[in-house]
Amino acid sequence: MKSVVPVLSVIAAIIGFWLLAVIPMNMHLVADQAQRDGAVVMPDTPIARQEVSGIALAVKNPDLIPLTYDFNRPRLPAPQQVAKEMYDTIIGQRITSKRSLVYHGWVTLAPTLLGFVIGTGLGVLLAVGIVYSRVMDRSVMPWAIVSQTIPILALAPMVIVVLGSMGVQGLFPKSIIAAYLSFFPVVVGMVKGLRSPDAMQLDLLRTYNASKSQGFWSLRLPASAPYLFASFKIGISASLVGTIVAELPTGARAGFGARMLVGDQYGQPLVSWAALFAAALTAAALVGLFGLIERITLRRMGMQAT
């Protein structure tokens, strides 16, 4: 509970900065609109106004400032506008409606979860291979690292198009992108975790003449649990980002990524911002969920979560 005050302070600072930024960001648009509506604006032509900054414009026309917080198609929406849009599209719609963010959220969440399962499964298998096989250690790890240097934005459309031409559509291609992003933190964390037992603990098992599989199940796997959970938390958020990126360039009709793109293309910034915040909240909820599972599991194992 001690963390409440610092967390709230940071949030207050961010919202404060946001509220201040709304004025100069929207001032030109508001001034143009006010002039069309018959108000007197200084300077009095759009071209002349382009020459001055948003801040200077606000100083010259202080009576227009309140309008920047309530503009229809703002460059930067005000916090309460985003909050209202989110309320309208999350609570105010049937969740089966195409306008509901819950509907779009599920469209994004389903491939995220499937991709996460594929990615972590693959990651754990690769990690076990890397730890137990020198050949895999030398051959797989460099490729895993190289795979993460390719911009996902370039790769995602190719994967979607290639899979689409093979008749694979819908959930699965997006899951592949999500898995592609989430397997890497799992590989890295799991390799570190499986290698975390020290020489003494390995020697101890040797004095018992334990087999390799006994060493894996009784020592290496439980020792890797704290590392695995850290990887899960990174992996699940990477998975969500992967799914959203997979929705962006491919003309997807639904999902957070599609909403962000639609809002951008049709001049509805509120739609984009609402989707952006909904995605962030979803990621936070997923990470929080894994944090909870981590705590419960590690407590049951007699270890303290770090």
Partner: peptide, 26 residues
């Protein structure tokens, strides 16, 4: 033979009983 190391090296995720049971399970 049984070997006792410089550090106890008990598995933190096992109880005392569980640690002593480890060689017996193996």
């Amino acid at each position: 033979y049984g070997y006792v190391f410089q550090a106890a090296g008990l598995y933190p995720w096992r109880t005392i009983g569980g640690n002593i049971r480890l060689p017996l399970e193996i």
